[in-house]
Design a protein around this nucleic acid. Structure first.
Length: 420
RNA sequence: GUGGGUGUAGCUCAGCUGGCAGAGCACUGGGUUGUGAUCCCAGGUGUCGCGGGUUCAAGUCCCGUCACUCACCCCA
């Protein structure tokens, strides 16, 4: 008999960890909902050209990390490597940008990149993101960042920092790029690095090797070559962040792998995760919509890495969400009692109580053990004696305290005990 | 694509210079035929990743191979 394992680089999440996974995802969706973002559900695959044009033909993501295939109709299809391009496509296709602006949307789901897997880097990964489209207001940049910050805080994380910079816009970036390339051309760089300098010179600024870092220490920085408009935008974003009480550090050497980013650019970095330390990131993308055939509207957004945020929670020992499988666990002694508990399960669940019971004719000891392992706060123990007396034993598992409750009042008693 | 590390029970791992395949956790039953989490007793776990070689003898040494993993790169 042959057995199967999951494809390389693809994580499975199952109880109890999956409860934390879902909580991490839902916390951000909830934070976005509180800020007026509507949920959008998008396809997992799109026309390959959408990503090639949106993300950028020269990016690593497009040149060597996409899952691309030809479908039966001869179309080139790609599993989405990121979220923003698909959102823009949907906005343009359905004319969502023809009404009130900004259009505020949130999404969640799987993304795919054919990379070599390592800690925190998977071939299928999960992201939750938000996009605010159509208004070039620095207060929106700050809002998007604040939503992410709020989400990380509500997860219980403390060991992260927000790094911030501005990449300039279409008017000031080309001139800076030339300036930087001219600077890099004079340095004694190896061939590989030289090639990177021509494709994306910013990346050389972010090189990890100390000798390269020393070489580029005096390199010109975008921060010092922003146009007046870009500079004003950046300063206002920082002011709004201060108003929102969001702490940040400036990192003028930050690099993003997607071509569409302009002006504000940010990354949430966690130091406990090894090499893949970004738990979320994003920025403004003022030319993207027009690039994809829509109106020339600006946008700002970010994506939160659910897998990495989950790792960060594990590193910090925090556990958002509830890993308990149920609130109340039923233990029946004998067939008559089991029938009563099965009937009761419908009533309890109907009242919103998470209820499970011991199946499979376990002994009392085994059934109580099941109650303990389920994470339930209370056990309901029912035997022949109780049925005759018209009662059921309600036991608080943490303390061991047990009291009798009339069978007819059990739903009310359980809800009361749970504080609902 | 390039380097390093690791593959032994469901999980985490030990196994020395080759000499009977191990522990803890988890699981099941019992101590208590109406009470879990603590304690005691009992129980079963295995193509030692796979293929070849050396040897009286290989989990252990050698060669190959596959997988996983960390890092470069890249990014969430």
């Amino acid at each position: 008999m042959t057995t199967f394992s999951a494809p390389k680089g693809v994580p499975d999440y199952f109880p109890p960890v999956s409860a934390t996974f879902a909580a991490v995802r839902d916390i951000l969706l909830d934070a976005a909902r509180l800020a007026g973002y509507g949920y959008i559900e998008l396809p997992v695959f799109e026309d390959t050209a959408l990503f090639a044009r949106g993300v950028g033909e020269s990016t690593d993501v497009v040149t060597k990390e996409m899952y691309t295939f030809t479908d039966r109709g001869g179309r080139s299809i790609t599993l989405r490597p990121e979220g923003t391009a698909g959102v823009m496509r949907a906005v343009i296709e359905h004319g969502l940008d023809k009404g009130q602006l900004p259009v505020k949307l949130a999404y969640a789901g799987q993304f795919f990149r054919a990379e070599q897997p390592q800690a925190g880097r998977y071939r299928q990964f999960h992201q939750v993101g938000v996009e605010a489209i159509g208004v070039d207001d620095p207060a929106l940049d700050a809002e998007v960042i604040a939503i992410a910050d709020e989400a990380f805080r509500r997860m219980g994380l403390t060991g992260y920092r927000l790094e911030l910079t501005s990449l300039g816009d279409a008017s000031d970036r080309p001139a800076y790029r030339e300036l930087l390339q001219a600077f890099l051309a004079k340095l004694p760089l190896d061939e590989e690095t030289r090639r990177r300098a021509t494709i994306n010179p910013l990346r050389v600024l972010d090189d990890k090797r100390p000798e390269v870092r020393a070489l580029v220490e005096d390199a010109p920085l975008m921060r010092d070559h922003l146009s007046d408009a870009s500079r004003a935008h950046y300063e206002q974003v920082k002011d709004y962040l201060n108003d929102l009480g969001v702490k940040f550090v400036e990192n003028p050497r930050m690099v993003r792998g997607l071509d569409y980013y302009t002006k504000t650019c940010f990354e949430f970095v966690h130091d406990g995760l090894g090499a893949q330390s970004a738990i979320g990131g994003g920025g403004r993308y003022d030319g993207l919509m027009e690039q994809l055939g829509g109106q020339p509207l600006s946008g700002v957004g970010f994506g939160l890495g659910v897998d990495r945020s989950l790792l960060a929670c594990q590193v910090e020992g925090v556990q958002p969400g509830d890993v308990a499988r149920c609130d109340v666990y039923g233990v029946a002694l004998g067939e008559a009692a089991k029938s009563r508990l099965v009937a009761l399960s419908a009533a309890l669940r109907g009242a919103g109580v998470r209820f499970d019971l011991a199946y499979g004719g376990k002994g009392l000891k085994g059934a109580m053990k099941g109650a303990d392992r389920s994470g339930a706060k209370f056990a309901l123990v029912l035997g022949e004696r109780d049925i005759e007396a018209g009662v059921v034993q309600l036991k608080e598992l943490a303390s061991g305290d047990q009291r009798e409750v009339p069978l007819v009042d059990v739903v009310i008693a359980v809800r009361e005990a749970l504080g609902r």
